[in-house]
């Protein structure tokens, strides 16, 4: 196996062009597990670890926080992300253990694209934009178009995810994840809720209850059509519970060894209701 340790993005991009089976590695917290279990056997690895350009957090455009794909979760947990995109900081805090958070990244979470990826519901709720570069082109794709299925995305072999744009939204936001222990656990069901006071709407995205992250558009529309979602309002428990039921109805969970579809659906209804109440209390 050859390992190319890129210092510049172009080196890595060129390596992808050159080697058909090359695999990118950032923190390695997903990829090394795959390799150790013999699920993948790349002959060329391209390490992004030393590409500083991927490790920056910027506000190039007003109202948008641009987070490099290689920024580790241990950084995302804190400022400036904590104040600007608190739901993302919370999601980052739920990932694995301190060791995993010191290495793992948004690029890796998107690269793996599992419905249990903890930062993906945050991206879905915030309509995040994904920057993809090749050696000679670049494109920006909405997260809604990026993820196409269980561990499937539109990313092409020669593309590197360089950064993710997160709109900074005024209003409460939060991420909750249910697992069967209190830390370091794969999500059984999760939800990210964003209250956008400017536009008087609420957005909610669900993880681990379908083949992709699920944005509950119908529940969002129902809520907007029945409630005033601008600043200073509050939501009754009945409305919150109804919102929870509707969000759960939009999920499509399965039974597996981690949990049951019935429990997952129930958990979504509870999480959605609680998140909404917190947003408007």
């Amino acid at each position: 196996m050859t390992v190319i340790v890129a210092k510049e993005l172009t080196t890595a991009l060129a390596a992808l062009r050159e080697h058909d089976d090359a695999r990118l590695i950032q923190g390695g917290t997903d990829l090394m597990v795959e390799i150790n279990f013999n699920h993948v056997k790349p002959t060329t690895m391209v390490s992004l670890r030393d590409v500083e350009a991927l490790r920056t957090i910027r506000t190039d455009t007003a109202g948008i926080l641009t987070i490099g794909s290689g920024v580790p979760y241990s950084v995302i947990e804190g400022e400036p992300v904590l104040s600007a995109i608190p739901a993302l900081a919370q999601a980052a805090r739920t990932v694995g253990s301190p060791q995993i958070r010191a290495a793992g990244s948004l690029g890796g979470n998107l690269g793996t694209c599992s419905p249990a990826g903890d930062t993906l519901p945050v991206m879905f709720a915030l309509d995040a934009m994904i920057h993809l570069n090749t050696l000679d082109s670049s494109r920006v794709v909405s997260i809604h178009d990026f993820m196409t299925g269980v561990k499937r995305s539109v990313r092409q072999h020669d593309e590197i995810i360089t950064a993710i744009d997160f709109p900074i939204v005024r209003g409460w936001q939060g991420y909750s994840k249910v697992g069967v222990r209190n830390a370091m656990v794969i999500s059984v069901a999760s939800a990210c809720l964003v209250a956008d006071l400017e536009n008087a709407n609420v957005r909610i995205a669900l993880g681990s209850v379908g083949p992709t992250i699920i944005r509950c558009r119908e529940s969002e529309a129902w809520l907007k059509s029945t409630q005033d979602l601008s600043a200073g309002q509050s939501i009754s428990i009945d409305v919150a519970n109804e919102f929870g039921r509707r969000a759960a109805a939009e999920s499509s969970p399965i039974d597996d060894h981690r949990s049951t579809a019935e429990y997952r659906r129930h958990a979504i209804s509870v999480l959605a209701s609680r998140l909404l109440r917190k947003a408007y209390q």
Partner: peptide, 16 residues
């Protein structure tokens, strides 16, 4: 909140 059931998943408030 980390010390409540659900831990780092931040699923609960005190009142739950």
């Amino acid at each position: 909140e980390l010390a409540l059931p659900g831990g780092s998943g931040l699923t609960a408030s005190r009142s739950n």
